[in-house]
Design a protein around this nucleic acid. Sequence first.
DNA 1: TTTTAGCACTCAATGAGAAAGAGTGCTAAC
DNA 2: GTTAGCACTCTTTCTCATTGAGTGCTAAAA
Lengths: 349, 349
Amino acid sequence: MATDTAIDARAQLLLKTLVEKHISDGQPVGSTALVEASGLGISPATVRNIMAELEELGLVMSPHTSAGRIPTAQGYRFFVDTLMKIRPLDSDEVRELAGELKPETDLQGLMRRASTLLSSITRLTGMVMLPRRRQSSFRHIEFLPLSEKRILVIWVVNELEVQNRIIHLDHPCDPGELQQAANYLNERFAGQSMQAIRSTLLEELHSARESVNSFMVTAVEMAKQAFPGEAEQAGGDYVLEGGSNLMEYAEMADMEKLHDLFEAFERKHKILDLLDKAATAQGVQIFIGEESGYQVFDGCSFVTAPYSVGSETVGVLGIIGPTRLNYERVVPVVDVTAKLLGAALNSKE
Amino acid sequence: MATDTAIDARAQLLLKTLVEKHISDGQPVGSTALVEASGLGISPATVRNIMAELEELGLVMSPHTSAGRIPTAQGYRFFVDTLMKIRPLDSDEVRELAGELKPETDLQGLMRRASTLLSSITRLTGMVMLPRRRQSSFRHIEFLPLSEKRILVIWVVNELEVQNRIIHLDHPCDPGELQQAANYLNERFAGQSMQAIRSTLLEELHSARESVNSFMVTAVEMAKQAFPGEAEQAGGDYVLEGGSNLMEYAEMADMEKLHDLFEAFERKHKILDLLDKAATAQGVQIFIGEESGYQVFDGCSFVTAPYSVGSETVGVLGIIGPTRLNYERVVPVVDVTAKLLGAALNSKE
DNA sequence: TTTTAGCACTCAATGAGAAAGAGTGCTAAC
DNA sequence: GTTAGCACTCTTTCTCATTGAGTGCTAAAA
């Protein structure tokens, strides 16, 4: 199996030990320290030879001549792909997590809870993308008059996402009409996708001009105004908790980098972009350093997992930490949290 | 007017100049620099004498023997109370601000917008406490069955705050009953305060047991479950934007302090406590350094203003920055933003 | 051929002076 | 009351030497 350039079992063990040691204390690891930690009955000189090979392969590097080695992004990649052994969480731990993610609260609150949970368990920064379904299934709509021409529209999609906005009408409209309009929409469109409804409405807006049903025109017009178009809802959003945890890591000490990182958190689009990428994967996904594709995230890693309702992936959650984060521990935590959040959203009892 | 220990006009001018200079460059100000900046035809030696007096009074201090002076918290206090001249914003600027705070969006979105606005204009951290009324006026309620015993309750208070939660029933309940219950509650309680409704409901829950109206019992029970009690809604919440801006100030370089500060942002209660304090004041309020009452906020100042709907103060907004922030500029910005946000919430057109 | 001991070498980190610079406080003269 | 003069203090910056960790190379050992 092993060719000349591939790394043999011993080298792998050493690399594994090196990564683990560096993860735990953040320092470059020297040959003598590696000998001790690995348990191999081997001399430091031998280890040095092997390190030279690993460096040749781009798996480790030294910050300067007289320091030990640290893993490169590639090194971490090799570690997470083939070296590390993740063991599932104890059922106790799972139960504890599950207890924190009851489906009772409102959606936003649940997301925030999940994010806080991720953050506090891992002592890293937790993030949860708000669910966004390709198909939003319309459930119910309600019009409440605020003044003659201003209406508060409340609608429910996907069983439990409540949204609202205020719309303006051209002409005054009485409560009876509004009620009729709501009834009409509720009966006619229940269960259909928002996209479908929107296009149907747009169509009818033309043909219906001739129709006698003036209230229907109103209804359609209102619904058109109320339901956000593609463009509007494309944005997406996420919640992030425990950003301050990152400041505990010495490698984050560079104020300028930290500033840029937090700015990226606030501006959102880079994070959202990354989460979107992770949404296509099946299970836990890991982005190490530069792999994220953004300069700002240099020195950081992401561990993400999509969560789903039914069989459809509706969002992604995960953590951000320094590259030297404890993957073995974090991966199962993220994995389980995603599953639990999905379960909470399904909430079929 | 001036007694022996009070400071005369010249000293005041010098203090004013010193504070302004220190605000603009963050450095201790020496006697020669002060002479130039103040425009007084006076020698540095004289200035030194005056500085010694101001130091005696606790208005300025030097970080060490061979440095210039910096204002103390007391010095800043004196500055903001009696020395600085705030001039109102240009009507152009006001119009620009107003354009960003249209009442159209949802409440949460509006708050976030206001916060971002504060942050980006001042290059500091903006915060907006979510509105919380002593009297929440009930407007409308709606029950949507999710499954036999799980109901999605949506209700509207204060004309445009839409809230929702899921409740569980003991016994199955059909859609007709739910509709009846909603109608009953809507007709009976429209316009009343949530507190009043809640206590009325609790009362009726006893007496109604004998009544024939089984649906009313259900209605009351559901409403009781749905409406949050005192304890639940006491929490309060706020949005904060532009935290990363603070990292641009040299005096925030201490990583440990920064960590604690951001942790305080996340934990929320200290900020909320402070905002609560500011809610009792009439207009713009300034907390300088230790005045906040919290160790973490040492070195930071707050400029806050309550915003109101009608004549009732419903929330507070403001900024957080280093003590040496540009009060003259920030005070009117916070002031106007609070007024505009109030106006957007009133939104009577 | 692989492993290892030995050793020279490199480089970061630490700390001690020395020199420069900024700004003060004090004193004595104006 | 104000100011010039001056000694003094303390930070900042630089240089230089020292220390220590850890390497790479070479030659010997297994």
